[in-house]
């Protein structure tokens, strides 16, 4: 039986079948290689990969709390620097840990300039605790704390622009990517790791359970998000937009329809006002990052 010696995130973890974050973990560790110390936050990925004594990780890995991965990583980096060691320090944390509760520690880490790559796997809600809203939850998504109802169409706030916040901290490399573009993801991880200073990567990681789609569609969901313009893969190098993945954009409807978290926008009949608001978000993204190959008709 193969022991997957070149893999640093291994079989036997307890994620749902087709889990986007599990795929992200595999791709990130594969790109980062064996000389990597991983720092994790409490959340789905930590829970599905490390019930004692069955860890799925094969490089050194540490978890402390939900909101302190950036600070723990700062200490790890200072410690190994002091000892003259050369491992790379990589945080892999959820969107709740990153956008919401951990932002103090993240701001500190980026401001101090630690040589750490911070990767957020963005499944757009607190999945571990049962699909509650986070600052990364998209507009109008129904979650257990922003349920769609007679008076509500779900989460009423747009996704927070964390990459922009970290660009403002002077980060030399900030990028977004998706599990649906595995090669892009791995290239960006390698680039971030080899860029001195604090770098940030946000990985779109569709969650079948939380978003309400079949686990075999995880890649498909990521691709649909990219093709709608609701997710954009881009790179900001030294504060300048260096690259954005261009797409032949399609209306947002198909992406929304494919997920239970947006079901209320189509039942009993399509809520065209709300869908138009979401389309406007995609249009704004497209313009901001210049991703359109051909404008939508």
């Amino acid at each position: 039986m193969s022991e997957n010696t070149c893999e640093f995130f291994d079989s036997g973890h307890r994620a749902c079948g087709g889990c986007g974050p599990a795929l992200a973990a595999k791709l990130i560790t594969r790109a980062a290689g064996e000389d990597t110390i991983i720092v994790a936050s409490t959340g789905c990925m930590e829970v599905f990969s490390t019930p004692y004594p069955e860890t799925a990780w094969k490089t050194p890995w540490i978890h402390s709390l939900f909101q302190n991965a950036a600070a723990v990583a700062s200490g790890v980096e200072a410690s190994i620097k002091r000892q003259g060691r050369s491992e790379k320090v990589v945080v892999i944390a959820g969107d709740g840990a990153t956008f919401d509760i951990g932002i103090l520690c993240i701001s500190g880490m980026f401001e101090r300039g630690h040589d750490v790559t911070y990767i957020c796997y963005d499944n757009e809600a607190y999945m571990n605790t049962g699909i509650q809203r986070s600052g990364a939850t998209p507009f109008d998504a129904s979650t257990t704390t922003t349920p769609a109802g007679k008076l509500s169409t779900g989460n009423q706030r747009p996704k927070k622009d964390i990459p922009a916040i970290l660009v403002a901290h002077g980060s030399p490399y900030v990028a977004t990517t998706s599990v649906a573009t595995p090669k892009d993801l791995m290239d960006k991880v390698k680039r971030a790791i080899n860029t001195p200073g604090p770098c940030y990567i946000q990985v779109h990681a569709p969650c079948c359970t939380g978003w309400g789609f079949d686990g075999c569609k995880t890649m498909e969901m990521g691709k649909m998000a990219l093709n709608s313009g609701l997710w954009v893969n881009y790179e900001i190098v030294d504060g300048e937009l260096a690259k954005a993945r261009k797409v032949k954009r399609v209306p947002v409807d198909d992406y929304l329809k494919a997920q239970k978290r947006f079901r209320h926008l189509f039942k009993p009949e399509p809520n065209s006002d709300e869908i138009a608001k979401i389309q406007a978000i995609a249009d704004k993204n497209a313009e901001k990052y210049g991703i359109d190959i051909k404008p939508v008709k």
């Binding site: 079989s11 973890h13 004692y52 004594p53 069955e54 860890t55």
Partner: peptide, 10 residues
């Protein structure tokens, strides 16, 4: 924990 022990979980 020791690396990769998750393999015990089939």
């Amino acid at each position: 924990g020791a690396p990769g022990r998750a393999r015990d979980n089939k």
